[in-house]
Computed example of a mutant assay.
Amino acid sequence: MNIVIIEDESAIADTLIHVLEMDGFQALWFNTAGAGIAHLKNESADLLILDVGLPDGNGFELCKQIRGFSSIPIIFLTARADEIDRVVGLEIGADDYVTKPFSPREMLARVKLRLKSTRRQVEPCNAQEQDTLRVENFDYIRGNVALGLTALEFRLLDALLKSSPRVLSRQQLMDFSNMPCEEAYERNVDSHIKSIRSKLQKIELAECLKTKRGFGYYFEKDRM
């Protein structure tokens, strides 16, 4: 399995590469945000270990960009240990958050855990399973296709599905999803809904997410 590391400290990168390769993983290191995201856009990878403080960008912003095109598991590795940083990191779509200094063996265990929890089923689904929208690892999956939702997108879609066919206002969606205070304004809900609808296209369910003009949004399960 291929692990990508985006980290500007060579000593830390060397430690990660050593412990991963000793366990049979292939590790590829980039010391800038630009080089790392360019690789991820063009090559497949199974997991990303991402620093927050990079010489040419912020790891949080990079995570948001990656979530726009990939559902790859992301583990933040950073010296920023404040609770608010952990919360932000997980809210924007990271799967785990490890602070420096860190235990290489613990990091290896976390890598294995994330890979195990996100690994797709290799057996073919039967017809009923192909049509079922189910939850795995805080993401919605149909057949073998995962939507790649961020944590906030997952909570929004989850609220709509559980409330279907009832219309939820933007304020209700903000409340149900526990949207962070800095993001809690109505037009931001529209942006997240647009992103969810785009991801639903992968499983041909985009038309099920409806807009009730002047009121809010609802999910039409009868069209699944």
Score class of each variant (00 low, 15 high):
113 L>C: 12
92 I>W: 08
164 S>V: 05
136 E>D: 10
118 T>K: 14
161 L>V: 08
173 L>S: 02
85 D>S: 15
170 R>K: 15
155 R>G: 05
88 V>R: 14
178 N>I: 00
89 G>H: 11
118 T>P: 05
195 S>L: 04
179 M>A: 02
125 C>Y: 05
163 S>L: 00
118 T>Y: 12
73 P>L: 00
167 V>M: 02
160 L>A: 03
75 I>D: 00
119 R>Q: 13
93 G>E: 01
86 R>I: 08
112 K>V: 01
119 R>W: 00
186 E>T: 14
80 R>N: 13
161 L>D: 00
120 R>C: 01
153 E>P: 05
139 D>Y: 12
170 R>S: 14
191 S>L: 13
184 A>V: 03
143 G>W: 03
123 E>C: 10
135 V>I: 13
96 D>A: 10
170 R>V: 08
126 N>K: 11
141 I>R: 11
187 R>A: 12
148 G>R: 03
86 R>F: 02
87 V>M: 14
128 Q>H: 14
154 F>Q: 04
116 K>N: 14
81 A>G: 09
137 N>I: 03
109 A>T: 13
158 D>H: 15
125 C>W: 01
160 L>C: 04
160 L>T: 00
188 N>W: 05
185 Y>K: 05
119 R>H: 09
165 P>T: 05
146 A>M: 05
68 G>N: 06
148 G>Q: 04
122 V>N: 07
123 E>D: 14
127 A>E: 14
144 N>H: 11
123 E>H: 10
190 D>N: 13
126 N>P: 06
162 K>A: 15
171 Q>W: 07
157 L>I: 05
191 S>C: 00
177 S>F: 04
128 Q>Y: 13
166 R>K: 15
111 V>A: 02
185 Y>S: 05
85 D>Y: 12
88 V>Q: 12
183 E>F: 14
87 V>I: 14
150 T>L: 01
87 V>D: 09
169 S>A: 07
133 L>T: 08
168 L>K: 11
85 D>G: 01
112 K>L: 00
173 L>H: 01
115 L>K: 05
182 E>N: 11
128 Q>G: 07
81 A>C: 08
100 K>Q: 11
137 N>S: 12
81 A>H: 03
105 R>N: 13
82 D>A: 15
177 S>L: 07
136 E>L: 13
121 Q>K: 12
66 I>H: 06
156 L>I: 12
196 I>F: 10
106 E>F: 15
90 L>I: 07
166 R>E: 14
149 L>N: 01
110 R>M: 10
164 S>W: 10
77 L>W: 04
190 D>W: 06
143 G>L: 01
196 I>D: 00
